[in-house]
């Protein structure tokens, strides 16, 4: 009887090794906010990936939790509850980079794997999947340089003042302009990542500007910029867009009307699925560096129709990361 039992256990072990060593592991998503289209897309992507992984027997459970209020103290309590609920890993989009450190340390000490993404935490025991926003800003200028070899005047649309992301993207844009010295930033306004704010701000500054050949945006503001230029009766410049559905739709319309060509780039909310797979890899015993970088989601002229078709109205272009994507990101960081 005992032999029989051991045999079964060994068999189960072998089977487990083939499927995944994480079949009995449970992963939780700790999220601090669900009030915009990006976060909604993030939550649904996580759920989709997690449900499939559970169905495939890769993990035992993967549940998403969102705090009822966007406060670090609430989220710290949520993380401590997850320790009590016996999860093996926490995938975390944090309300504060520092105020959750105590709770994250408790989780690490209790043997949990903590992977933070988007809103990352500074506690050294956690993994971070960060976004290189400066590189994103620089890439916009690099693209403009390939399209406009003669250079010219640029308009910069910034995000919400005082937010770290806005500073980083702007730094990248200015670094790009320093490198491609044929460009000149002749104006800079805050569009707050919102179409209506951007439209008003651009309409206000346009009369004072010379001819503008290109616009570097931060996402969420491109459509408003285009509207402001049209309302002022100016030629539409080359606007680098930010993956919002209304921006893509406008781009497709312009392309059909006059062959408009541009580039769109931003962070996909599907980064939650990347974080999920990274945590699964760590649970699986893989050596994973503590700091990883998320690739941007870039949309070129060729993918426009396909992306627009798959993006719900009012939402953001998204991509679901797979296990292979996660492995590639881990390898790139090593």
């Amino acid at each position: 009887m005992k032999n029989h039992f051991t045999g079964a256990a060994v068999l189960a072990l072998i089977a487990g090794a083939v499927a995944a060593d994480t079949a009995d592991k449970r992963i939780a998503l700790s999220n601090n906010y669900a009030g915009n289209s990006w976060r909604q897309a993030m939550l649904s992507t996580f759920q989709e990936t997690a449900d499939q992984a559970v169905a495939d027997g890769i993990v035992a459970a993967a549940d998403a939790y969102t705090t009822s209020e966007n406060q670090p103290t609430e989220q710290a309590a949520q993380i401590q509850n997850m320790i009590l609920q016996g999860y093996d890993a926490i995938v975390l989009n944090a309300a504060s980079p520092t105020a959750l450190n105590g709770a994250v340390k408790e989780a690490c000490d209790a043997g949990l794997v903590v992977v933070s993404f988007d809103g990352i935490v500074t506690e050294p025991c956690a993994w971070r999947i960060a976004v290189d926003f400066a590189a994103m800003g620089k890439e916009e200028i690099d693209y403009l340089a390939t399209r406009l070899p003669d250079g010219g005047n640029l308009l910069e649309i910034r995000g919400l003042a005082g937010v770290f992301v806005d500073d980083e993207i702007s730094k990248g844009i200015h670094a790009g302009v320093a490198e491609h010295d044929k460009f000149d930033i002749v104006g800079s306004v805050h569009g707050d990542w919102a179409q209506d704010v951007a439209q008003k701000a651009v309409a206000g500054i346009l009369p004072s500007l010379p001819e503008v050949v290109g616009v570097a945006t931060q996402g969420g503001d491109g459509y408003g910029v285009a509207q402001a230029f049209a309302a002022a009766g100016r030629d539409t410049p080359l606007i680098v867009l930010g993956n919002r559905q209304d921006e893509l739709k406008w781009w497709a319309e312009q392309r059909d009307a006059n062959g408009y060509e541009t580039l769109s780039l931003s962070i996909a909310p599907g980064v939650a699925s990347l974080a999920f797979w990274v945590s699964q890899q760590i649970l699986d015993g893989k050596e994973v560096p503590k700091d990883l970088t998320v690739p941007f989601l870039k949309i070129t002229q060729a993918d426009l129709d396909a992306t627009l078709a798959s993006t719900p109205e009012g939402s953001v272009a998204n991509t679901v990361y797979t296990l292979e994507d996660a492995q590639a990101v881990i390898e790139a960081a090593e």
């Binding site: 609430e74 105020a99 506690e123």
Partner: peptide, 17 residues
């Protein structure tokens, strides 16, 4: 006490209180 638990602070850390 809060900072002793969280190990770091944030200007909005306790607004819920």
């Amino acid at each position: 006490a809060l900072v002793g638990l969280t190990t770091a602070a944030d200007a909005n850390i306790a607004l819920r209180y």
